Simulated assay, not measured.
Amino acid sequence: MANSLRGEVLALYKNLLYLGRDYPKGAEYFKRRLKTVFLKNKDVKDPEKIKELIARGEFVMKELEALYFLRKYRAMKQRYYSDTQN
């Protein structure tokens, strides 16, 4: 069981690191923050607590995806519609 949780944590870290490439404050900023958060929780041994942290990380992933989608939507909207239209 510990190995499966370890795999989930590693996959979450890799996915967040990948998503952080386009972070508005910069990839290096995101990478530092991500590393800090993961190192802060490295000593957690309780499987239930680890699952909670994984769920929180997945929520952050979804929020980042929504942020990027919204940014892309706004950029496309600016290209195709002028600001004078109501």
Results as ranks from 00 to 15, higher is better:
59 F>M: 10
17 L>S: 13
1 M>H: 10
40 K>F: 07
75 A>T: 12
63 E>T: 07
40 K>N: 05
51 K>A: 11
22 D>Y: 09
18 Y>F: 10
15 N>L: 08
83 D>R: 13
26 G>E: 03
22 D>E: 10
61 M>V: 03
77 K>Q: 14
46 D>I: 06
24 P>F: 04
40 K>T: 10
44 V>L: 10
71 R>F: 03
46 D>A: 07
8 E>M: 14
72 K>M: 12
35 K>F: 05
50 I>M: 09
5 L>N: 10
35 K>T: 11
20 G>V: 06
52 E>M: 11
7 G>P: 00
60 V>L: 15
12 L>N: 00
75 A>M: 10
32 R>I: 02
28 E>R: 06
76 M>Q: 15
56 R>T: 04
38 F>E: 01
54 I>P: 02
43 D>H: 13
1 M>I: 08
50 I>T: 03
71 R>V: 04
6 R>D: 15
56 R>P: 02
51 K>V: 03
80 Y>M: 14
59 F>C: 04
16 L>A: 05
42 K>I: 15
22 D>P: 01
40 K>E: 14
49 K>C: 06
48 E>Y: 07
26 G>C: 02
73 Y>T: 11
58 E>Y: 12
70 L>S: 10
66 A>H: 14
6 R>W: 03
20 G>P: 01
35 K>P: 00
50 I>N: 08
72 K>Y: 11
39 L>G: 01
47 P>V: 04
21 R>P: 01
47 P>H: 02
13 Y>E: 11
60 V>W: 01
36 T>H: 09
71 R>N: 15
50 I>Y: 02
76 M>N: 15
75 A>L: 13
28 E>M: 08
63 E>D: 12
61 M>H: 05
78 Q>P: 00
51 K>P: 03
85 Q>A: 07
12 L>D: 00
64 L>G: 07
